[in-house]
């Protein structure tokens, strides 16, 4: 895998809406590369004929019945919102 550069870190940060000062980008790129290289050690293991694993435990996806068992809790849902009006979340205007 190619190394993560400063510009890529800045892009990922923007996509995740995390503010990172310019002078921190180089340092973070180094840390991310360190983690990636560490994980890439797994490439040394031969995985031919081994099916991709979705979970470390031998479990199947749990299904639920199609019944309404939740909701009707507007107050609770809005409780932590910085701003709520008329039952809506009120967020800074999104300009299209």
């Amino acid at each position: 895998m190619s190394d993560i550069d400063k510009a890529t870190v800045a892009k990922i940060a923007r996509l995740a809406r995390i503010k990172i000062e310019d002078d921190k980008l180089d340092h973070l790129a180094g840390e991310i590369n360190g983690i990636l290289h560490w994980i890439e050690q797994l490439n040394e293991v031969n995985t031919d004929d081994i099916a991709p694993m979705a979970s470390v435990v031998d479990a199947k996806l749990r299904w639920r019945d199609d019944q309404v068992t939740d909701g009707d809790k507007q107050q609770a849902v809005l409780k932590n919102a910085p701003r709520a009006e008329y039952g809506f979340f009120a967020v800074p205007k999104v300009i299209e």
Binding site: F88, F89, P92, K93
Partner: peptide, 14 residues
């Protein structure tokens, strides 16, 4: 999202 209900805010219904 409703953008036309308030001059400064967008209203969100989930």
């Amino acid at each position: 999202s409703m953008h036309d209900q308030h001059p400064q805010y967008t209203y969100v219904d989930l």
